[in-house]
Each structure stands twice: as C-alpha cells, then as structure tokens.
C-alpha cells in the first residue's frame, strides 16, 4: 500500500426533504486498489460516489484527495475531476454527443488539451475498452453493453488516477461484463485505482481486493474480502448474503479464505481423495 488516494472522514449528507443519506461515513481508499462498495439499495453508495468526485458537498465531515483536504472552487473542482473519474450506471445519463468519438473527446477538450492530443487520447481510450471500430457510430445506435464501454472510454480519455464506477456490471450479459472487466483489469494493472459499487456479492468477493460494507449511510467495515465477507453478523446487519463460494467451502469442510485459496483447497481435496 502506498498511502490513501481518497479518504472521507465522518461525512454527512442530507437530501432535500430531510432524507439522511450519509450519516457519518468514514472510508479510506488505498492507492491502486480495487475497492468494492457493497450494500443494499438506498444504503448511500451512489451518494458516496457523488461526494468522492465533488458533485455533492458534505454537510459535515472531511474529504481528502491524495492526502490534501479538498476545496470546492472552480479550478480545484476541475483538478479534482481530472484525477477522479465517475462512470454513472445508466450510460444514457452520460452520453450526450452524436458520435462515439465526439463523446469521448468531450472530457479531454475540457482539460484544455490540443486537437491532435485529444485525437490521440480518444483513439487510445477506445482501444483500451476494445471498441476502436465504433468511433464514427452514432451513440443512439449502440447496444447497451457498447454504450457502457463508451462511457468508460469517455472517462479514461481524461487519464484519471481513480475511476468510480456505479454498478459496472449491472444489466450486462456475461460477454459484455467480461469485456468490461478485462478493460478494467488492464487499467488497474497500470496503476489506476478502481472504486465500484455492486449488488453482486460473488463478483465483489472474487474480483475486488478490498471491500467496504455500507448500511444506513455508514461504512460498517472495510478490509480484505475474505475476512469481511466471512463475518455473518456484519452481512446480516447490512442485508447481504454470504458469497456462494464460502457456502461451498463450508459444505465441503474446507477452511474459509479468499477465492483463490478456497479454489486451491478444493482442487487439492479432489486430487487427494
């Protein structure tokens, strides 16, 4: 671990109409991690993400980016958003331009980059998510999975240090999810920090290297998936079920652990018997 890229400390947020969405939430995002934010509907995941890129301002509490307290001036927000990208769940909320290449060029142009540099970044981002061939297509003639990858490319083209993804795999078919995750894995290997919310506990258990469990606008616990998701009391409090692999491990009489550990132990048993 090389320190925290993002840290929130005791943040509170109340939406209009006195709905308390965040109630003293504290969470640290280590640099270079793949952090899954878990929780039932309405636990404050999306509200948290909107705080992490400065879209919403907490009523109380502190947010730090790269060890420095954040500020909300125009220039500061610009810098913040170029370092922390946000991919919304519904791609139609994010795609506004007529063609794929035009949409992806929006972020880099806002960074004040030159035309040739923007073109280079657009090509690079489209290649990174495997849709270079769609550059001149109209955004409303894409499939849902393609749209999701275009929104990711739109954020990638700004070369952020952290990408926040709201439910990255929701609504995608197996192939679409696989393509998206492959792109994310390449980014993560290159040092980009990933923070994503999900309802898919098996996905979080198998793919993330950190998980944070949210309930009632607070973070109940954060840590390695193998320890956090084995805590039955915690899962019950957050309204989550246990990962399937831990059920299997228990039924097979194999000690719990991370995904790879359990799979290795199960394989060992098979060859042993």
């Amino acid at each position: 671990m090389t320190g925290a890229i993002l840290a929130v400390d005791g943040i509170e947020h109340t939406y209009a109409g006195e709905v308390l969405a965040l109630d003293g939430l504290s969470l640290t995002v280590p640099r270079g991690c793949r952090l899954a934010v878990l929780g039932s509907n309405g636990c404050g995941k999306t509200t948290l993400f909107l705080h992490l890129n400065g879209s919403l301002r907490p009523g109380r509490g502190r947010i730090e980016l790269g060890g420095e307290p954040v500020s909300y001036g125009r220039a500061a927000l610009m810098g913040w958003r170029s370092r922390v990208g946000l991919v919304l769940q519904d791609p139609d909320d994010q795609l506004f331009a007529a063609t794929v290449a035009e949409d992806v060029s929006f972020g880099p142009l806002n960074l004040g980059l030159s035309g040739p540099e923007v073109r280079r970044r657009v090509a690079e981002a489209l290649a990174a998510v495997g849709i270079a061939d769609l550059a001149e297509r109209s955004t409303h003639m894409l499939s849902y999975g393609q749209k999701r990858r275009v929104t990711l490319a739109g954020v990638l083209a700004m070369r952020p240090e952290v990408i926040l993804l709201d439910e990255p795999t929701a609504g995608l078919d197996a192939r679409g999810a696989e393509l998206l995750l492959a792109a994310l894995e390449r980014l993560n290997a290159g040092g980009t920090t990933l923070v994503f919310s999900t309802h898919d506990i098996d996905f979080a258990y198998g793919w993330a290297d950190r998980v944070a469990v949210l309930a009632g606008g607070r973070c109940l616990r954060e840590g390695a998936p193998a320890t956090v998701l084995a805590d039955a009391g915690l899962l019950a409090e957050a309204g989550l079920r246990r990962p399937l692999l831990l059920d299997i491990a228990e039924a097979a009489g194999v000690p719990p652990g991370g995904r790879d550990e359990i799979l290795a132990r199960l394989a060992e048993r098979k060859t042993g018997s």
Binding site: L50, N53, S55, R74, M78, R81, S82, G85, L86, L88, D90, D93, Q94, F96, A97, A101, E102, D103, S105, F106, G107, L109, N110, L111, G115, V118, R119, V122, G154, V155, M158
Partner: peptide, 19 residues
C-alpha cells in the same frame, strides 16, 4: 443526472467536442 455526468467530465458551460 446528465448535468452530474457532464460535470464529472469537467463541463463548464460549453459543450465542445472534436468533430
């Protein structure tokens, strides 16, 4: 939400894209 999404990509009052 579109406004949020655009702001996250540095929108500041002008929709510029590279045509």
């Amino acid at each position: 939400r579109l406004d949020l999404g655009l702001a996250a990509r540095g929108y500041h009052g002008e929709l510029r894209v590279l045509g």
